[in-house]
Simulated scan of single mutants.
Amino acid sequence: MTAGRIRIDEVIKDGEKIIAVSRTSPFYPDGKGGQLGDRGKIGPANVLKVKEKNGYILHYLDAHLEPGDYECEIDPARRKDIACQHTAQHILSAAFLKVADLETVSFHMGERVSTIDLNAPFVLEDVLEEAEDLANEVVRSCERVEILEIEKEEAEKMNLRKLPNVEGKVRVVKIGDFDVTACGGFHVENTGEIGLIKIVDTEKVKKVLTRIYFTAGDRALKDYREKDKLLKSLSRVLTTSTKELLKRAENLLEEVKEKSAKLDKLSEKYAEILSKVAEPEKVGKYYLYHFSGTPEEMKYLPKFLADRKDTIVLLEHPDRIEIVSNWIDCRKIFEKLKDQLNVEGGSSQKRAVITANSASRIVEKLREILKWF
């Protein structure tokens, strides 16, 4: 742990939250510059979260403290990981700019994976690979990472990726001759400390941006181990090698589709037969059919029953009840059940779906309602 001192000016109790407030703090706040915050201890209390608000630093603690001066400790392993992820982000953002002239418009660091948003609705696979390769070349080159405090006029001459709108001196992070950008966060001293940068996923956001998910350092190694274990486990389950895993999965999916299509046809035929032999319950002027069974067979029962005059079909699933009819407004049925039984669900004119584990009270109440329709 990195040791230091801190003065707590006020301690606030907000429900179960204990918040220690100070004007200055050695703890870096969560979310500042897209970065994760520090963790550690203040006196005997563990720091769970750190926020910056209205010029004050808020420390969320797991134990109560009185205002005063305290020894504090900052978790160095977490700070090292944060520095690793943040420098990796600078390298990856610069790599996309050099490879495809794609700019990073935002950055977010997560506990497991981090993201950058690029100013393009999609990024080609070969561009992703080229940027990743270039980023890892910079890592292997062990470039020096310099933190410079310079005047804004001098910063304007350094060809920064983005010049911040600040007064006075600018904090600049310089990664060899590869990248120069303004930043207030933590960084490694040498790119070799990162070890590896790996893009793990992408997605389109806001219709005009591409979000790049990445990991670096020990996180990347952990991610590789987890995926390697998963592949080996799948290989054992599917009795094939990892090289043949995709082909094996595709073959199995094709088999499942064929069998599913056959089951669908059989279920439809069974539902047709069941509809011919099933005996309805006469309730008022309506004929109530009540079924419980597999989803496949119940899927087709309304097809063969709903058009029969004054027929109502009730389908009992493990987690829901369906009421289907072409002869009564199911919306009115649902509203009455909702008012009288406080059930949840939704409805249309010809179908109502009710969230329920048992149909007994629904059927009983439905009988009462139908007698008055």
Rank of each mutant, 00 (worst) to 15 (best):
I82S: 10
I82D: 02
I57M: 02
K49W: 10
V47R: 00
E71G: 08
L65P: 02
N46F: 07
Y60I: 10
E71W: 12
Q85G: 04
Y70A: 01
L48D: 11
L58G: 13
P44Y: 05
K80I: 05
Y60H: 11
Q85K: 09
Y70E: 09
D69C: 03
I74W: 13
P67Y: 06
R78L: 15
K51P: 06
E66L: 09
G55Y: 11
P76D: 12
V47K: 01
H86C: 00
G68R: 10
H86A: 02
R78Q: 13
A83R: 09
E52H: 14
V47I: 15
C72T: 11
A77P: 10
Y60W: 05
D75K: 10
D75I: 11
L58N: 11
E71F: 08
A63V: 01
N54T: 11
K49S: 03
D81N: 14
G55L: 07
E52D: 13
K51A: 12
K53Y: 05
R78D: 13
Y60C: 04
C84G: 03
K53R: 15
E73I: 05
E52L: 12
Y56P: 04
E66S: 10
V50K: 05
I74R: 03
K51S: 10
G55H: 06
P67E: 12
E73M: 02
A63Y: 09
I82N: 06
C72R: 02
R78K: 14
V47Q: 09
I82H: 15
G68N: 02
Y70F: 06
E71M: 07
P76C: 11
Y70L: 01
L65F: 06
D81Q: 04
I82A: 03
G55T: 08
T87K: 03
V50A: 00
E66F: 13
K53M: 03
D69F: 04
L58E: 13
E71S: 08
E71T: 10
L61R: 00
A45W: 09
G68V: 09
R78G: 05
A88E: 01
V50Y: 11
H86V: 00
A83Y: 09
A63E: 06
N46E: 08
V47C: 01
A45I: 12
A77R: 13
I57A: 00
G68K: 06
Q85P: 03
K51N: 08
C84V: 15
R78P: 12
K80Y: 04
A77H: 15
D75P: 13
N46K: 14
D69A: 11
T87Q: 03
H59C: 08
G55M: 07
A77D: 13
D69P: 01
C84Q: 06
Y56F: 15
Y56R: 15
P44V: 14
D62Y: 02
H64G: 08
